[in-house]
Write a protein that binds this DNA or RNA. Structure first.
Lengths: 242, 242
DNA sequence: CGAAAAATGTTAGAATAATCACATTCCGGG
DNA sequence: CCCGGAATGTGATTATTCTAACATTTTTCG
């Protein structure tokens, strides 16, 4: 049905990857077809393109945030606020570790474009944010991809993490319990988080207050492992002892 | 001058982080101001927001992304055609290696959603494509990110690659020379490509014909290392000897 | 080849958004 | 309390985009 059509769609996607936005007119000229046809093409592929008032944008650009979970946006405001506290802790030329989770995606997004950093991560979403920052030197811990959390389990690749000099580690959690500490949903994340915390000069727990009192299957740290706990309500010193 | 104003800007950013896109009308209602004011606010902060035909999106969403090379789409059609040949070689439950470069991004995109595979890659762009395929088990070789090519240089993480059982490796090149073999622009890619080729049962070079006769700084393989060379003009057996 | 179907192009009128000039409100300092 | 300037709102005007119906071309297949 559509060898010509498929080619167009693909050319569009490529152009978008390069330019970010494409006006209907430009797209039509680029593809050598009428604007009407471009409109129809774009409309036929809502999963790849988003069409906004005459402009074409790659669909995942506007994906409504990264929504790892349905709850990803339920506390977006709180998460954003918590990240602002984290941002204030970052100094130029720091080497930071950014954990996974929607909370820290916000942190990665908000890193100023002109702040020089080395950032270590193991989440595809975080990596995509960091890749867009020209002054961030990114190190991604690879391995087997886990779709549920958009992270990689490092396995054999984990060991070199211990040799990286981490200045500040920003860690998130699915649950925070004063007695038992911080927990998350995915077991493969545990060794990575622990290694990052162990190797960092200072670690900070970044969560929104809705996580307090929750418990997830995998505990990975005591609250006393953190120098501070950053929430939308402000930064507080972590309890000195579990 | 603007404590009220700053608050609005922040509220807008929050809403955007949550919703992805915001229509002028919604934004005005949300902030409790007139559409004109929202228009002015957004226009005053081009570094945070992009305004497209009545819709507001976060600026870094539309950041203009990857651009591996200026030539990325100049041969999009050819690259796509070359990938179709590659696709035909892939069987269910294969373990494949996908090299970097815009050509192979097309390959990753075109993997059918219902084809179960294990795929190894080291390019952020390819990884993003593979992450969208529910039946692909992805392994990403991490390391230091190289923005110019959107790839990772594996360094210490490279060694485990040798222990992965690769069924078919699909390799791209920036230049193909009958005498001297295949070359690429970035030196850090050389050991990865070589290790993949060495570890794979069969390797295939996927390029468009515009690459023939070109020479890039880093040679990484002889043409006889490949079982076949796949171009938009079809698959041909690789020369038996350099 | 020839008919049917799909894809593309064209047009005009309706809907929507952008711009501008000016009216109004809000706020801090005499 | 009043004044001046900044911020905001309003409405008319102009420009742009959207929609849908229909004309034309291209492809498919008997």
């Amino acid at each position: 049905m559509s060898s010509r059509k498929t080619g167009r769609i693909d050319a569009l996607a490529d152009a978008l990857a390069r330019r970010g936005v494409l006006h209907l007119r430009e797209a039509a000229a680029l593809l050598g077809v009428s604007e009407m046809t471009v409109r129809r093409d774009v409309g036929a592929h809502p999963e790849r393109f988003t069409y906004l008032g005459g402009h074409i944008v790659s669909a995942d650009d506007v994906a409504g945030g990264y929504e790892l979970d349905r709850e990803a946006d339920s506390h977006a405001g709180a998460k954003l606020a918590a990240c602002r506290h984290a941002l204030r802790l970052i100094a130029p030329d720091d080497t930071i570790f950014i954990d996974c989770g929607s909370t820290l995606v916000h942190l990665a997004q908000q890193i100023p474009a002109d702040l020089p950093l080395t950032a270590i991560c193991y989440s595809l979403n975080v990596a995509n944010c960091l890749a867009a920052k020209p002054n961030v030197r990114m190190i991604l811990l690879g391995g087997i991809y886990h779709p549920a959390s958009a992270t990689f389990s490092s396995g054999e690749w984990l060991e070199p993490l211990g040799r990286l000099g981490i200045n500040k580690a920003f860690i998130s959690a699915g649950g925070v319990d004063v007695q038992r500490g911080a927990s998350c949903s995915h077991f493969h994340e545990v060794p990575i988080k622990q290694k990052a915390i162990a190797g960092a000069i200072e670690s900070h727990l970044v969560v929104d207050v809705s996580k307090f009192g929750l418990v997830k299957p995998a505990f990975f740290a005591k609250l006393s492992d953190f120098r501070s706990i950053l929430t939308e309500e402000g930064a507080r010193a972590a309890p000195v002892d579990a």
